[in-house]
Structures are given as C-alpha cells and as structure tokens.
Write a protein that binds this DNA or RNA. Sequence first.
DNA 1: CCCCCTTTGAAGGGG
DNA 2: CCCCTTCAAAGGGGG
Length: 597
Amino acid sequence: MPQLNGGGGDDLGANDELISFKDEGDQEEKISENVSAERDLDDVKSSLVNESENNSSSSDSEADRRPQPRPHLESYARHRELFVEALRRQQDAGLFKPSPYAGYPFLMIPDLTNLTNLGNPYLASQAARTYLPMQWPLLDVPGTAAMKDHRSSPSPLSNKVPVVQHPHMSHLSPLLSYSPDSFPPQTPPPFSPDAGMSRAPHPAELSPYYPLSPGGMAQMAHPLGWLPGQSIYPITAGGFRSPYPAALAMNASMSGLVSGGFPSHLMPPTQTSVPHPTIVSPAVKQEPRDGGHHGKVSSPVEKAKDDRPHIKKPLNAFMLYMKEQRAKVVSECTLKESAAINQILGRRWHSLSREEQAKYYDLARKERQLHSQLYPGWSARDNYGKRKKRKRDNGKCDSAEVSGGPFSPPCVLTPPQERPPAHSHLTHTHLSQASPASSLDSPATPTTALASPAAPAPTHTDHPHPHQGESLYAEQVQPLSLITKSHRSGRDQLSHISQPPAPQTSYLHPLIRSGSLAKMSGPHSSSSSSSSSSSYPQYSPHMVSARSKTPPMFSRSFPLPPMLASSSNAAHHQSEQSLHCALTQSQPLSLVTRTKN
DNA sequence: CCCCCTTTGAAGGGG
DNA sequence: CCCCTTCAAAGGGGG
C-alpha cells in the first residue's frame, strides 16, 4: 500500500508489520489476479503432511497470572461513549477522507450475538467480530436507508455466509468470497464495491480516529472490515453498539444499517463493559472449561479476574484474511475441516501480493491500535491460560518422525537447522539466493525478512528489494508438498527449512531494510514515532525468525506422493477431502497427520 | 463433551 | 537479543 504512512506521519501505518510479502508480490500482483486461482489449485495440490506431536506438557498453566485489577471496564465504557459520539459527528458531518485504502471500505461490526452482550462485540464469545463492507460514500449518508434495507432483511444465510466481497479482493480471485450463491438473489451486496473504493481512511489517519478523543474516530473505517464469516445481516438486531466498530468508522451508516438508528442510543448507558469486539464475557468461549460460568471462581482474586470481561486479542492480518476468505475456500473445496482450510488459506496468504497483504496488515494494525486504546491496560497475557493450553509438542522429534515416515525424503522435517535450506528451497533456492548458509535464513534472515511487513504500506511496489526471488516463491509453493509439523511455534525451527523464502526476503521493506529491522526502529520509518511499539511491533523478528519459519507450507521438500504417509485416520479424512479440492484442482493434496502419539 | 488440528501474526517471558 | 510459548478464528474429527 501506499504508503500508509503517508507521508506523514503516521507512524502508524508505516511500520508495523512486516509483511511478508514475497516479492512475488510484485509480479505476483499481476499475476495474482489471474493466477490466484491457479495457485490455489496448485496449492492444493501440494500434499500436506502433518505431524502432530503433541505433547502436552504444558507446564504452565498458570494462566492467570496477574490479577491486577485494571480499570478496564471503566475505561471501556468511556471509550465507548466517545466512540459513539464520534459516530454521531460523523454522521452529521459526514466526514470521510479519502484514503489510501480506497478499496477497503469496510466496517467492523459486532455480531449480533455480541449485541446481546452489552453490545460489545467482543464480548460475545463467538461471533465477536463482524465486519461489514461499506461504501464510503454511503457512510456519509445519514440514512443509509438503502443499506438498511438490505440489511434489514436478514437473509437466511446471513450468518455464516459471506455476503460481501471485499472489493479489492475481487480481483484477486474469482473465488472471492461470496459466492453468489450465498447471496440471496436480492441481496446484492449492499455496497457496490466500486463505490466502496472510493475511499478508505488512511492509516495515518487512524490515530486520530482511535484517539480517545471522540472526534477522531469518525473517520475510521475499517478497511477490511468485512469478514465474511459473519454476516452482515446479523447486525440488524438492534443491538449494535459497539464502540469498537464505532471506532472503526463506524459509520453511521453502519449503525444505520444495523440498527437503523444510531447506535448510540442503543447503547446502554450504563454498561460498563465495553463493547469491543474483542471482549468476551468472562468465560471465554474457548474455554468451556470454566464452565462458562463465572461462577466458578473461587478465590476472590480470581473472581475478580473473572469478572473482567475476557478481552480477546486483536486479530492479526492473517486472521483477518482467514475470516474473510474462509467461506470462499470452503465453498470451493469440499473440505470442511478447518485445519485443512487453514492450510489452504495459509498458502493463499503467501500468494497474495504484498499489496494485498498490506491491506490486511493495515487492518490488523488498526485493530491493534484500536484495541489498545480501548483497553489500555490489556495484555495478551491476560488471556493466557484461558484457552486450554495446548500442549506442546515436545520436542521436535518430530522431525525425525516425519521424515522417517513414509517419506523418507528429507522431509522437511529435518531438523531444523540442519537442513539447510537447500532442500527446502530447493526449488527455489534461487530465491533465497540468499544464502546458502543462511539460506534458510535467507528467508529467515531476520533482517531481511523482517522488513516486509512493515512495509506493506509503503511497499508499494517498489521495493527495490533485491530479492526478487520472491516471485518464485509463489510457485514454489505449489508443487510442494507440505509437511507440517504440528507445532508451530516453537519448534518451528524447522522452519527454516522450509521457510518460504519468499516472503521474507523479498519483502524487506525498504524502510526496514534500511533501518534495523528489528524493531524497526522506528526512526526511520517514517517516522516518527517509533512509536508505539505497540503499533508496530511487528517487525520483530518474529516474523522472521520464529515463526516465520513457517515452514509448513513451504516445506516442500519433496513432493510427497500423495498419500504417503498417512498414518492416521485423520489423515485420511483430510486427505480425502483434500483430494476433493485437489481433485478439482488437480492434484490431490494429501495431508498426513500424525496423531499424537 | 471437549480438545485437537491447522494457519500466520503478535506479544510477552525467559534464557 | 533470541527463542519459545500462547492466543487469536474456525469447524470437522477424534477420544
């Protein structure tokens, strides 16, 4: 994107994320459109192998750490109000600024379900976030009558069907979301994409928006907001009130859409809880364990904690993308399993052009910002332990396992480091060109790697980056088979192996590159602020290093014969399904999962 | 019934 | 500093 940062300063925009774009992006972009479809197919083709090792050893669990009481609620409430106000103003004034994001006129809206809860979208456990696409122009319109209409009639599909497509996406792939099917005939997307394009808020602008100060928010629109998963329609119920969205831009329109009225009034004055989409009631959805009921808490302290609403982490760029695209993928493929779908999504993600990814990074950034504003004291840690903790695998043995598995091939698994990259990259080594040794790194190389995200915005194109390899990346993907290791995180070390080169390397953003990557020290970037760390933290090495590893997809070391491995039933299932897709596409992808041992 | 699986990214803690 | 670990979403599958 365009520079998010705009020239100005916004820091915000700029930096954050590094997108991992692969360079492909550039080329890809072009390609992407056409190709996207193909790629997907290709992607699918590849076979996956998973190993899961699970282990569970988690020690921690301590989950709850710190009981510190935070003033969240209060602040939340306050924020909410502010937002509301902002909205109004917006309506009144109708301010929209053109934004770089033109294409993304989306708003986030809390799901109906959420509505129920105090309106805080996040509260609801599940449906916490809904994004609506909006047209900017419309936004201005007070009445949004039109929109309303659409919305007013709930469609059956409404909930899970993706109704609208993201404009920009559209070109990406045919798939795009919404399949027409989804829509009831009548429901055309409320907003035409084109129109929507008109403008989106500039990231830079964000800040202003989020600001506590009421005024600011108005402008924000959620760029990507719409997530297909949640339907727009849901909103109708009256409840829509979430600050979050509001913040985003809530456009009045939205509100209008939703409630038809102003949300503000909808909002219960008293509520303390904040309506951020991320908020979830104390019991986390995920955690059934609690029983969902608050009740359980025994100690006072805990109790206190419980009382606090569960605030979900803001969605990252990929998650946003997933939400958006999942339905589409599902519709295309017969696969239903999320795990399989996610794999596909992961691939697609990588195949996205940097610009496209940038959009999501941007949104994610905005969400984070907003989230931080809404919940200043919130820490991701607060949610630890709420989910069950997963076990982690343990050692990575897996690799061995994996490899050992049916495929001997080197599988990806090879121990992390060891395997040089070669394999992984094999194909593409070129890409990485980088380096041999580092090869893995190449991608991995943090330094390099990092860059990207941030860049997104700026990216725009240029990126001089050297690497060009990127493009390759995309291709690579296809052919490869995937072997995943289950666990990601930590162990990904393997990743190196697989590392996809593309992304990282390529992307380095100029900025980043120039600067340090790591944190981008902001300095450079644009700006200013290095600001907030929070905002941009991303650059971090993580991308690269740790996870970036993400080998999975890339790991292609060798193409697995389709089915190889499968040890588990599960594998079969997936594989079958996968096949489905694959078939359609062309090759089957096989997933092999390893179950826990 | 509940957790797992799977993806990428963000963030915090620990070494 | 770097690595590791969790969590975020989602939904079928498995125990």
